[in-house]
Every structure is written in C-alpha cells, then in structure tokens.
Design a protein around this nucleic acid. Sequence first.
DNA 1: TGGTGCTTCGG
DNA 2: CGAAGCACC
Length: 494
Amino acid sequence: MTQRPIAIMWFRNDLRLADNPALRAAVKWASEHDGAVLPVFILDPVIDGQLGGATRWWLEKSVSALAQGIDGLAAKSPTKTPSLRLFHGDAHGVLETIIGSCNVKAVFWNRLYDKPSTERDTDIKSALSDRGLTCESFKANLLFEPWEVKTGNGTDFKVYSPFWRACQKFPPPRTPIAAPDTIALCDADLGDEVSLSALDLGPKPFDWAGGLAERFTPGEQGAKDQLFDFIDDRLVDYADLRDRPDRRVTSELSPHLRFGEISPYQVWHSANHYADAHPAQGKTASKFMSELGWREFAHHILFHAKDLRSVPLQGQFAHFPWSEDQDALERWQKGQTGFPIVDAGMRELWHTGYMHNRVRMIVGSVLVKHLLIHWRAGLAWFDDTLVDACPANNAFSWQWIGGCGADAAPYFRIFNPVLQGEKFDPAGDYVRQWVPELRDMPEQYIHKPWEASPLILKAAGVRLGTDYPEPVIGVKEGRERALSAYQDMKQAAS
DNA sequence: TGGTGCTTCGG
DNA sequence: CGAAGCACC
C-alpha cells in the first residue's frame, strides 16, 4: 500500500498550537489529501547562532512543552512514535533527508524577519518548490509585515509614531485561530532524529537557571496564564505604573513572544477586548498595545537594516571614541557599578533572566554614556542573559539607547542614574530587593549612598568601598565626559 | 521614553 | 526663593 502523503509543519519561533496559521494549513492540507502531519523542530546553525545561555534554557523548556501539547492532540488519533520530531543540523539538509525518507508532499512554516533566517527560508522555498512540493509560509509572528507598511513616499519608516499611525490605518489584526482539535500525525520512522537532551540546550556545567524557573513558565500554557493574569490584574494600572520597577505591573510577555508561544494577535485581541469591556480604560489599553507597536517597529527596522547588530543606523557613530575599559564593563555586568538602580537591574537580570524595561534604559544609558562602552558590548551581554533576547528587539533597543538608532534617544540625552532611581523607585524597594547590602539605607540616600554621612552609613551597616562599591565614575563627571566624546565624534565625522 | 542651567514670575 | 518655562547639550 502506498504511504499516505505528508505535510511537514516546520516549527521555529512559533512554538504554539493556537493561532498558528502554518499549523492550521498543514492540518487542512493533510485532511484534504487523506494524509498526515509531520511536526518538526530543527536546531540549525541559524537558530543556534541566535541563542544565548538564557534563551537556550527557555527553548529547551518550550520545545518540551510543545511536544507534550502535540502529544495531547495526537492522543485522539492512533500513533506510537514521538509527536514532535527533533533534529540537529543544517535545516535544508535535514528537510531534504526527511523528504527522501517518506512521502512528503508539502511543507509549511511561519515567517521570520532576520537576515540569516530569511535567506535560509528563501533558499529552501525555491529548492522545494522547484521539486514540485507545496511550500507555503505565513504571517503569524507580526501584526504587519515589514514590507506592507510604507510612508507616503513608498519608503520604510524611520520614526516610530508615524509608523504606528500608519499601522492603525490597516484593517485591525485578524481574529486569533483556535488550536486544532486533533492532528493526524505521520508515524513513519525517520533517520537522524535526536532527543531533546541531545540538543544540549540546558544549563552547563551546572544548573544555574533556578531563578529563571522561579520567575517564568516557558510554554504555551505559561504564556496564556501570563497574558490573562496581566489583563485581569495589571493592565488597569499599566499606563500609570509601567515605569515603576518596584510595582511589577508590566506584562512580562516578551520571552513568550520571543519564541512564539503566544502570538501578537492573541495579545492584541485580549487588550482590545478589555478596552471594549472597560471603556474608561481605553488609555491604558492603547498604551499597552503601542508597546506591541514598538515590537513591530523593531522588526520593521531589522528587516530593512543592513546589519542591525553591528552597524549603527546613523553613520556618524562609526567615528564614536568608545572606551575599551574591561574593568568597567565587568563591574557593569556584575552589578557592581556603585549606582544602586543600575546594580539592582543587572543583578535582577543575572538572577532571573529578565529586567524591567525602564531599568534596561537606565543601565544601557550608563554603559554607553557614563562608561563610554560600545553598545555592542551591552547587546552581547543581554543576548546571553535575557530570556527574551531576540534579533529584532535587542539590537534595535541598544541602537536606541546608544543614540545611533532609528528614532533613537539623542546621545546627548543622558539619564542621571540617581534621578531615575528616585523618580521610578521612590522608596528604593527595587534596590533593596536586588542590592541587599543597601537594605537598611534610609530612603533619602538609597540611590546615592556616597552622599550619606559616615554616621548614616554606619547605622545602615554599609562600609562604602567594602560592602558596596563607590560609584565607578561620578555622575556629573561621566555626563560631561560623554558629552565631550559626542563632540569629538561630530568633529571627526565632519 | 532627560538633564542642566538660566530666566522669569508670583508669593 | 521655589516653580515653571526655556535653550542647549
């Protein structure tokens, strides 16, 4: 008897069953052709090259959750083999091998927007199409394709506000698609399959990820729980308190969106539904939705940029006199700068794989301005430590804070880490949580312990320079040094 | 989604 | 003399 025709569902950054257009297409194709679906995940050099320690940890958990989810659907139809097939190696080669070993007639996936992925996918699509396979990709991970949104002149956007305004002129994002009720799975034996542990994603040489697991639950269910908890409990306060790291009202959905455990369509519609049900809360809902807009904008910029990770969008920054101060970089990484709000953020990052967005801006500003260290060093550190590090948001945001990006904070706009701390962590609760050696400092000095008198320091049990460092550079001195470096750059560029 | 230093103005 | 407005970085 002839083998049933097979549709491959190629999972990448869309590790979910609900609102997954490629998966829906694969299931539909299989039912129309009396065939079966073969779900695969391939750890290829492109994906591997974009992973850091924290995202590797997340990916392992997320792939595991996805496999269990597919198992749950497949339980309704008879199968003995594993539901999600895992592979390690070049994606094109792996797909060719699978196609050669069973009756594959179609391949489906959801689109990505970074250069290595789009080049890989373009090659694969043309090769498979040439051989007569049905090969289709879908819009799933963005509300608006980077090439759909254009200025009046037909060019891509460089400024956020008009970009997001232009997005609003499109029909509203489509309604999310339900997860399939059941999947007819291919049960063919394939060569070259590997186990999840063989992908070697987990923490090494010891399990350092306890703090990450405590804060997050990777996987589709964890993403849904996070979204609904946010909508039910925190969205009401979002507009007013979103900049307060001590209050924890943000959604913390970024890592779930990073791996596509939830789609921006699901997030958008949840917020939109909330706004409809609570007309008085329209402002906070649209503020939250505009943050989805920043995510869209970052992908828009990534898609159109030459190399967002390393080439400043504003060319004159190629002449910036960056510092090579390795000691200062290490103090920043370890949360030992002597600026309490910075050290709290860097330690939160190390411990949990996450940092509040306001604090990201502060630590970023201090690195590229007070310390004069290249934003690429900050980008590299965040890539390795953040659970939500992605090619679009991370590179875009570092160019933004570096002053060299699209619609960026001008370089001369320098955050004062003391004032930022006092404004957004007024009681110092956030600092006290992550910098326990300052726990007993009075509110007045919690963000500037170096200004406290010896008596006050002694009462708080802090020996400056021993228990907690002196600032790595003076706030004012760092500001002036940065402004003068900026002048030097403009001189050199002219 | 800045900070600083200066001026002006009301108390 | 502090708040508010402004120019410049």
